[in-house]
Amino acid sequence: MARAALTREEVLQAAAALVKQHGPAALTMRKLAAELGTAVTSIYWHVGNRESLLDALVARTVADLGVVAARGRTPAERIVSVARGLRRDLRERPHLVAMVHERGLTERMFLPVQRSLVHEVHAAGLRGARAADAVRAVQFHVVGFVLVERNRERAPVQSPGEQDLWDAETGEQDPALARSLGGPVDADRLFTRSTRALVAGLLTADAP
């Protein structure tokens, strides 16, 4: 039985869920209609054709990624919290973010996060080019980290793996380092630690 009171927002939510799980190629009007228990004509009535639907999803993603709340008592803590929030959001919707990039709206998507970072680096006393460098350094760090994470997650099984490559010789006689580099990566811990170190360096008064 066709569903009665379907809304545009429900259509976009269902479409976003399909793209997040399976990528844009999996999003067809028939599959979306089946997910919603409605007729294909109803989907067209609410969002237009598939290209219009993809455009709407991109606009929705840009709006969703714009909201990253800063938390903490100090500018440094708040900058780190923005970075962690941005990493989380990018990891949750990689296919949607890729669609934003393909449509040339990446800079628009990042603008709200950049403005949050500007506010915090200003609160820390940075101005001008130095403040701009701090904002970009944090953004690039987050995006680069997420890209490395995604590549590692999608990579085929490595042979030899890291556990086979690190020993006393490659670790320069530092067995603890060799064990750590040969073991699994705690990405959350590494991200937080590296971001804190980056932000501390950027906000240091005598930094060049």
Rank of each mutant, 00 (worst) to 15 (best):
A5I: 10
A14F: 00
A14T: 06
A25M: 11
L27Q: 04
M29T: 14
L32C: 06
L32T: 03
A33I: 01
L36E: 10
S42R: 09
R50W: 01
L53I: 00
D55V: 04
A59H: 06
L65P: 06
L65S: 06
G66W: 00
A69G: 00
G72Q: 01
R73I: 12
T74G: 11
A76S: 11
V80R: 00
S81N: 09
G85I: 04
L86S: 03
R87F: 13
R88Q: 15
R88L: 15
E92M: 11
R93H: 07
H95N: 11
L96E: 07
V97W: 02
A98Q: 02
M109W: 07
F110Y: 09
L111R: 08
S116L: 06
H119F: 03
V121Q: 04
H122S: 15
A123V: 09
G128R: 10
A129S: 11
A129Y: 01
R130Y: 02
A131V: 03
A131T: 02
A132M: 12
A137S: 14
V138I: 09
F140I: 10
F145R: 01
L147S: 13
E149W: 11
R150L: 10
R150E: 14
E153P: 06
Q158S: 13
Q163M: 13
L165R: 15
W166L: 07
D167M: 01
T170K: 02
R179E: 13
L181V: 11
D186V: 02
A187Q: 10
D188A: 13
S194E: 12
R196D: 13
L198G: 01
A200M: 07
L202V: 10
L202C: 05
L203A: 05
T204G: 11
A207K: 10
